[in-house]
Design a binder for these strands. Sequence first.
DNA 1: CCCCGTATCAAACAAACGTTTGAAGGATAG
DNA 2: CTATCCTTCAAACGTTTGTTTGATACGGGG
Lengths: 206, 206
Amino acid sequence: MSASQFSTKQRLLGAAEALFAQHGFAGASLRQVTAAANVNLAAVNYHFGSKDNLIEAVFRRRLDALNARRHAALAKVESKPGATLEDALEAFIRPALELALDRHGGAAFMRMLARAYAEHDERLRRFLSDNYGHVLREFAVVFHRMLPHLVKEELYWRLDIVAGALTYTMADFGLIKRRAGTSETAHREYTVEHLVGFAAAGLRAP
Amino acid sequence: MSASQFSTKQRLLGAAEALFAQHGFAGASLRQVTAAANVNLAAVNYHFGSKDNLIEAVFRRRLDALNARRHAALAKVESKPGATLEDALEAFIRPALELALDRHGGAAFMRMLARAYAEHDERLRRFLSDNYGHVLREFAVVFHRMLPHLVKEELYWRLDIVAGALTYTMADFGLIKRRAGTSETAHREYTVEHLVGFAAAGLRAP
DNA sequence: CCCCGTATCAAACAAACGTTTGAAGGATAG
DNA sequence: CTATCCTTCAAACGTTTGTTTGATACGGGG
């Protein structure tokens, strides 16, 4: 009785992602997760060691790719001579929005990420900072160059807030159906432009 | 051993607010809450009946006043002939920001509210909608008049997203120390202006 | 064939959860 | 003083939690 083309590990990650998005990390129990994945309860601790490790694995599965794409997009922006703040923000936002609109659980992951932001959990923050902080620091350097009027401390908490607001917004965008008559790519382009302007306004303020 | 000028009920509400903000509704246990409030465990069910009722009471304590102030501010805007979208947004935002900057647990409450938004919990959404939805609908009517290019459905989910992003942002603002050399009121005025522009951009887009 | 490492399973573990109970204070009114 | 009501208390209730255990099945290599 496996009833799926995916391995136990993959099914666990998928079910955990969906249930963490819906009920939170504390609210979704391992029994719910393993039942949704059609897997024995003990499989979580066998494959991941603990619930906390499962949570981290769910993040890793998506964030490794997301940060790689953000890093590559930022590198391309930096190689361009006349790069603007909007270009850098697009390098930050577009990969995330594409992930949010991904049909295979992307929306669920984005809602989960938004919850993680809202939770301000110390353990989770350290995990994210340790594993993906270096890419955020690359962006901070570029933003700092483009916004010389901001002292570093001010820039950092603005980035923190803007990133959180963006994540929250993208999580909700994933829930919303596209307006009828709008193609997928047109919708995405419109949304990217919208969010970039939104974020730029927040960062450029005096 | 009460060690406080406040009643058991008030101490419970305060401790619950702080711990729900920090660990979430499922993550903060009644034993943590009652310990922080220096109160017996059974006091929660004696005074509130259940944990869910305690959660609702924590919301009620702040939201009754917040919605009254929003309603009054909107009425004042409507009585003015040349009212703009920014005026209406300010009526929505300023009371919330003042709550977020309130020194007696306002920041904690705002973080709790942001978590409630991120959680998309059905029970909580119904409670908030039932008790405070009428004020939001008043705002929606005014916004609809000021943004005739948006069909009602589009306006509603934009409002939902904008309100969520604002709540999240204000929750973080509450955590951030004011920049040195800026007075409290100057900081607040700057932030209101900033957030109003932020939200207006999101609503006015085509 | 047997062996061994991997994977799955039902069952049990202690701990923590929200909630309930019944008795004990403590103040106020008759 | 007694009686009454509201409040607090320690203790226990039955569930549910994350985790661990030991047995069982599977499957290629010696």
